[in-house]
Design a protein around this nucleic acid. Structure first.
Lengths: 145, 145
DNA sequence: CAAATTAGTTAGTTAGACTAACTAATAGAA
DNA sequence: TTCTATTAGTTAGTCTAACTAACTAATTTG
């Protein structure tokens, strides 16, 4: 197979399209899931990675600090995360997930992903294999591993 | 490998995360690309599929009709698409891409996807292979084939 | 110790999504 | 055939999440 610039562009195009359409499918679940994609994603980082500063979260999620400030404020208002000032550097807000956050995260994620999981289940064995094998490279593409 | 409900959920989760992060990478190119993701996507449908009604576009892009109305109005204001009433059913707006639309689409898409194409180029041969093989199944997941 | 840097917030704007309620056109049924 | 239901698209209003610019507070550095 050719892997020149043209075909890389075609691959990029397909991925771009796939990402847009996958997220649109998922967005339809949002209303009942009770937690939007960005918030779910932040909670996921905190659930699996533990405490983090706002700046770190913004970097990991690839959004600006003000955007993360707002997300955290809303999550905090809903008792999903808590923050405490770092005694060693009081500019830092150490943010962590609450028990409520964990529980809501678990159920909301499940709800949000259920439709997609069902579609994954409907794939043929070889299609599913292909998807599984692509996951690690996809992570690399957005600079997350 | 197990392919039970739990692991389907894990796959869904990874894809969800990958889609979110890929689009965030792409969004950073938007300012200079001059055409946002949704508009690019609509123009793509018109460029490859020819004339379509607003309703069809909304269905294909999986957004509501008002959302598509607004996108088309903005694209029309920029001379990227033109519309004409269907003489056989004057409720229908037949929407098509203009010459300017085609040209802007070509260059904007290239610009927007360039960063991603470069990252695809940086993948190892086997990683790229894995991504290529996943494309068809990914289309199935969002119901587009 | 003053200046520069860093972390986070506030204010204001924008794009793109939604629902509800509307107009206009067509199709169907009494 | 006319009145009703349906269909296509628009308008109005709201929401979330993104951005930049400009700010405060804390810390580091020259």
């Amino acid at each position: 197979m050719k892997t020149d610039q043209a075909s890389n562009l075609e691959i990029a195009d397909e991925l771009h399209s796939a990402a847009i359409h996958l997220l649109r499918v998922l967005r339809k679940q949002d209303a009942e899931a009770g937690l939007s994609a960005p918030k779910l994603s932040v909670l996921s980082v905190l659930a699996f990675g533990g405490t983090a500063t706002l700046k770190t979260l913004a970097a990991v999620e690839q959004v600006s600090r003000p955007t993360m400030t707002k997300l955290i404020q809303e999550l905090e208002a809903d008792d999903m995360v808590k923050r405490q000032t770092n005694p060693d550097d009081r500019r830092n807000q150490l943010i962590s997930i609450t028990a409520k956050g964990k529980s809501v995260f678990g159920t909301a994620r499940r709800k949000r992903l259920d439709a997609l999981a069902r579609q994954v289940a409907d794939l043929s064995k070889s299609d599913r294999q292909a998807v599984v094998k692509a996951i690690a490279p996809l992570r690399k593409l957005s600079g997350r591993s």
